[in-house]
Design a protein around this nucleic acid. Sequence first.
DNA 1: TAGATTGTTAATCGATTAACAATC
DNA 2: TAGATTGTTAATCGATTAACAATC
Lengths: 210, 210
Amino acid sequence: MKTLKIPEATIIRLSVYSRFLYTADKRGIITTSSGDIAEGVGVSPAQVRKDFAYFGEFGTRGVGYNVKDLHRHILKILGLSNIWYVALVGVGNLGLALTSYKGFRERGFHICAIFDSDQGKIGTKIGEVAVQSIDELEKGVRECHAQIGIIAVPAEFAQQVADRLIASGVKAILNFAPVVLNVPPEIELRNVDLAVHLEVLTFNLGMQKA
Amino acid sequence: MKTLKIPEATIIRLSVYSRFLYTADKRGIITTSSGDIAEGVGVSPAQVRKDFAYFGEFGTRGVGYNVKDLHRHILKILGLSNIWYVALVGVGNLGLALTSYKGFRERGFHICAIFDSDQGKIGTKIGEVAVQSIDELEKGVRECHAQIGIIAVPAEFAQQVADRLIASGVKAILNFAPVVLNVPPEIELRNVDLAVHLEVLTFNLGMQKA
DNA sequence: TAGATTGTTAATCGATTAACAATC
DNA sequence: TAGATTGTTAATCGATTAACAATC
């Protein structure tokens, strides 16, 4: 089986290209080139072509790429031509922010279950989804067939929430708690730590002075 | 001038190590090793030592590292021994989530000015800081000497907010809007796109099946 | 001293860039 | 045909890993 490994950096850039193409398409642009895309997103044209080359040939030599076609191809590659069901655990400010984040719905991510431990929140509706007790996590996740779990609870509860999500059939986890989670290798895990980004900024600011 | 370039991956890992050390210190652990740290955060011991080596010698051969000392060194490297003043623009759910994010305050990030365009929000207090009209952005940013700006406004306003932050003296920007911002090269810019993370997950889930 | 663990060098691995033949 | 731009190969660059001498 031919499975040449794709750099994660390539996947992240594909995601960025897809937003560029979405915008270009909305503006009525029919054809684009690796040069256009490169300029629009701040990478080199060679990089753009190389990234596409991992997945096939989407352009026409001498002409460029059809915006709509290329966009469709990339969405397919990223798995965004399916609907993905997502379970959200934790309805603090961050959890709330995620429920109202338009980018998710637009790209086929459907939050189908929401859990919290706060009695005051249980039963309230967020959008169309009622907040369930965290005691019902397993049941709720199974009922809506969530493949993805988002952890937005305090650090000290994150590991047990992860364990329970996995036990309930979730295959991928997006973790916002600042802890290193232990998950089986077949589970996809990504960590988002908001403070890390600020720290990279301050490191670089420090460098400038030096 | 000896300025060997530090990989950004190294900075991100330093940030992760620092949290490990913070926890170890709170637990009363005095001494640690590259092996301990590596296990705790999921990298190789060689990687840990290499990362430190960019900045100096912090350990004792045959013994390991003093937890408190090492932690202090890393905070210093990351620029976290200063207080950083931060201006937040946009008080939607995400902006709110950021104001209440404990990790920021703990690590020396002090949100000193908050702006929004919604009349209903202007004047209300979030924590100790009153929301100001976005019309007063320049004045407000200057008054509190914010070095860092956080953009949490809709994509279509992000560029102009960036321009105004920079004009007001901000040196670094953390951008949550899903657009490519144009900023002068001396301005530090990091983009956080929440949807990208989910897309990397779904790409990898797709790969598993294939 | 013997055991442990650092700091550092060299080897490996992987990703980016440059160049160009293919071709519309 | 001449000009443009892709897809791909080879060269470069950079980051990670492995190995080991230094040394507590």
